[in-house]
Design a protein around this nucleic acid. Structure first.
Length: 465
RNA sequence: GGCCCGUUCGUCUAUCGGUUAGGACGCUAGGUUUUCAACCUAGAAAGAGGGGUUCGACUCCCCUACGGGCUGCCA
């Protein structure tokens, strides 16, 4: 733990769509860093682009963060609501001389670029003394010589020659702030100490630093993390399948597993692969973040997911399942289903890697009599096997209904019939679940309980006539 | 085009000048087994290419190739 000033991080999404998996990871890193150091994790909605921003998107992003389990401090800040402040800072810079009024029109700028290919735009108004009336943008009076050094916590020192940078617009001619200016003002005002964000902002950081310097503000620590790529190594896009966090949720990966997997994507702590939130908070560090873009690997995600499902408390798991059912629009569980599912969870969670896999295995506990027998399972139910089920019923009628005792009884019946355990497990499985692929028959019996198990057996025995 | 960043098994990664280059997922082969799985054991599998620096480079420097980003009065 740091003895220094408290850490303040932030996640600043543009509300133009759902929460992207890359954004989710950026948010996670910021959250982990702040929470691991007793700091604050803030949220800012970058909604200055009125045309593209929608309240629905803001809602979707917040919902995504909540699902991922990333709680933020205070109310989310709307960047748009702060445009007065942004303008005020721009004017202050104007007065201090670190910014100037630029009367160039977009057409003039385009023409200038035409004449000066591959050069950053140089405004003729930068040093003008005779200023006209009319609309103007406020531009930063950036240094034209020397270099700006970004001391990035992930990328190391990054040097950018100042003659590569143009005088960026702080305030547009319509009086609205540009994103580049607004971020700096907001991050400063919000007291952000560590800016952890996507790699795509790295180059722009040089210009943002110039604003910090011009205002005499302390620069935050910058950490630019590499972007996430698709399985083919290309930039993540729709054609890669799931890219929205909600899609991963719908696929049945628990949030705790997503946190683990996402944390490991681009960050590492030695050979540690599987960890819980407490460990992640303790271990997470900027120094452990890699510099190369990482690819999404669903196979590994599944493995991580399976681990976390396996170690989850039964009660927690049941809640996760219920939430998943709600998310996917499925019918909520009845009390009876819950009471049968809960005792089945210890066996089920061992093998399931995702929630739908678990639900598939849990089907026996969710259906009610009379259960329908799928074709493959029906094959196991002939007159001979029905006879064995009858013998088994008699044998376990008064058993104590523990796993061991049930198994012992089944083995005995099998022996008496001169067959292996498999010969009786088949029909038993069919009678209990109506399926050929299920959890262990004894696990099903203990979860179902004596009454229900015997009733299901009886249903099949009676069919024999 | 210019500038910036990146490049270790198929994938995620460890290594912070000296290791038989380690782990994990996946894959292959065995094992376990009442189905499907899960699980256990073993194995194959990597430093983009080329120059330097050094007694010694995956590690430091340069070049090339490839990938990505930025280059806007978008965010």
């Amino acid at each position: 733990m740091s003895e220094n000033a408290p850490v303040v991080t932030r996640f600043a999404p543009s509300p133009t769509g759902y929460l992207h998996i890359g954004g989710a990871r950026t948010a996670l890193f910021n959250w982990l860093y702040a929470r691991g150091r007793g700091g604050k994790f803030l949220l800012r909605i970058e909604d200055t682009d009125r045309a593209r921003s929608t309240p629905e998107a803001t809602e979707a992003i917040l919902k995504g963060l909540e699902w991922l389990g990333l709680d933020w401090d205070g109310e989310p800040v709307s960047q748009f609501s702060r445009i007065e402040r942004h303008a005020e800072v721009a004017r202050e810079m104007l007065e201090k001389g670190s910014a100037y009024k630029c009367f160039s029109t977009p057409e003039e700028i385009a023409a200038w670029r035409e004449e000066h290919p591959r050069q950053p735009f140089q405004s003729p108004w930068r040093d003008a003394t005779d200023l006209p009336d009319g609309p103007y943008a406020i531009r930063l009076r950036a240094p034209r010589t020397g270099e700006t050094v970004i001391d990035d916590a992930v990328q190391g020192p990054v040097r950018v020659a100042n003659d590569q940078l143009d005088d960026m617009v702080l305030l547009r001619s319509d009086g609205t702030p540009t994103y580049m200016h607004a971020v700096v003002v907001d991050d400063h005002d919000m007291g952000v100490t560590h800016v952890i964000r996507g790699d795509d902002h790295l180059t722009n950081t040089a210009r943002q630093i110039q604003v910090y310097d011009a205002m005499g503000w302390k620069r935050p620590v910058f950490a630019h993390i590499p972007l996430i790529h698709g399985e083919d190594g290309k930039k993540l896009s729709k054609r890669h399948g799931a890219v929205g966090l909600h899609e991963f949720a719908a696929l049945g990966y628990p949030a705790v597993a997503m946190r683990n997997y996402l944390a490991r994507l681009g960050w590492s702590h030695g050979d540690d692969e599987l960890f819980d939130d407490a460990q992640a908070r303790e271990w997470f560090d900027l120094a452990g973040i890699g510099r190369a873009p990482a690819r999404l690997d669903f196979k590994k995600l599944e493995h991580v997911s399976g681990h976390h499902i396996g170690v989850m408390d039964d009660e927690d798991l049941l809640r996760v399942i219920e939430d998943y059912l709600v998310e996917t629009g499925a019918k909520p569980l009845t009390d009876q289903q819950k009471s049968r599912l809960l005792p089945a969870l210890p066996a089920l969670k061992e093998k399931a890697k995702t929630l739908p896999q678990l639900l598939e295995q849990a089907r026996f506990a969710l259906v009610s009599r009379p259960i329908d027998i799928e074709e493959k399972a029906a094959k196991a139910l002939d007159s001979v096997s029905r006879g064995m089920l009858k013998s088994l019923t008699a044998a376990v009628q008064h058993a104590s209904w523990t796993r061991d005792e049930l198994e012992q009884a089944a083995k005995t019946v099998a022996e008496e019939n001169g067959v292996g355990l498999g010969k009786i497990a088949g029909p038993l499985r069919a009678a209990l679940a109506g399926r050929a692929a299920t959890p262990s028959v004894f696990d099903m019996m203990t979860a179902l309980g004596r009454e229900e198990s015997l009733a299901r057996l009886q249903d099949q025995i009676e069919l024999a006539g």
